[in-house]
Write a protein that binds this DNA or RNA. Structure first.
Length: 217
DNA sequence: TACTAGACAGAGACTACCCC
DNA sequence: GGGGTAGTCTCTGTCTAGTA
């Protein structure tokens, strides 16, 4: 199973709770917004993660017992959790630019310094360049045995990787240009949008839900 | 190859709210 | 008031990576 995804999830949870405390349901929505382009997060993944973070003292759970209804548990970050989040964000090792973690690391780029951002972007780019070489070599070797659909799929894959490399190169250049003007800048270079949980409506409970059907009991 | 532990998905329990 | 829906969380079976 994926330990690397666990790190991405841990980072996503800590990062979101650093913005504001929230309960499990809201957290799941937010995490899915953050990581949802890969896979949706289920409760069976989220709650064990929250429990583990609680055991480690990174988060605490406040139970809302006053409401009279079923207790709603609000999770919030502790001082230790903030420290741990800072450590995770400062990590620029290979895991920071692998497929599982890069997305969530990128989503929290605004909380890191420019040298960290550049290092992760460069690492990601070199990883993709390596992958591009491998795919090109494999394509050359097996081209005769492929049907037209497989070739199309391979072409699509190559183009996607090339596009991402171009995008990363642009980001690195912008990041360096911004760093030249403001060496300790922690804000993203112009033209780069980052995910900010502040822009979302935490804790907002909609009056009416969408038409998702629920299984009968 | 077989076994094990942990990660995971998703069903379902439970409660409150909404609307007819 | 009752049925349907929404929100929250737990539980259980399945899957998979790691190890002997």
């Amino acid at each position: 199973m994926s330990r690397r995804r666990g790190v991405a999830l841990e980072l996503a949870v800590l990062g979101l709770l650093a913005d504001s405390p929230m309960h499990g349901y809201e957290l799941r929505k937010q995490v899915n917004g953050l990581l949802g382009w890969t896979r949706l997060l289920s409760y069976g993944t989220l709650y064990p993660c929250l429990k583990a973070l609680g055991r480690q003292g990174y988060i605490v759970a406040d139970e809302d017992v006053d409401s009279g209804r079923r207790a709603k548990i609000t999770y919030r970050l502790t001082a230790e959790g903030k420290e741990h989040l800072a450590e995770l964000l400062a990590d620029t090792g290979p895991s920071a630019w692998d497929d599982e973690n890069f997305g969530v690391r990128f989503a929290f780029f605004s909380r890191t310094t420019s040298p960290i951002r550049v290092r992760i972007l460069e690492g990601r780019r070199s990883r993709l360049e390596e992958r591009l070489d491998n795919v090109k070599n494999a394509a050359q070797r097996g081209r005769d045995r492929m049907d037209s659909y497989t070739r199309e799929l391979q072409r699509h894959g190559l183009e996607s990787v090339e596009r991402e490399i171009t995008w990363l190169t642009e980001l690195i250049e912008r990041e360096r240009a911004a760093a030249d003007t403001a060496p300790e800048a922690t804000t993203p270079p112009s033209g780069v949008e980052t995910t900010s949980a502040d822009e979302t409506d935490h804790g907002h409970r909609p009056k009416k839900r969408s038409s998702t059907t629920r299984k009968k009991k």
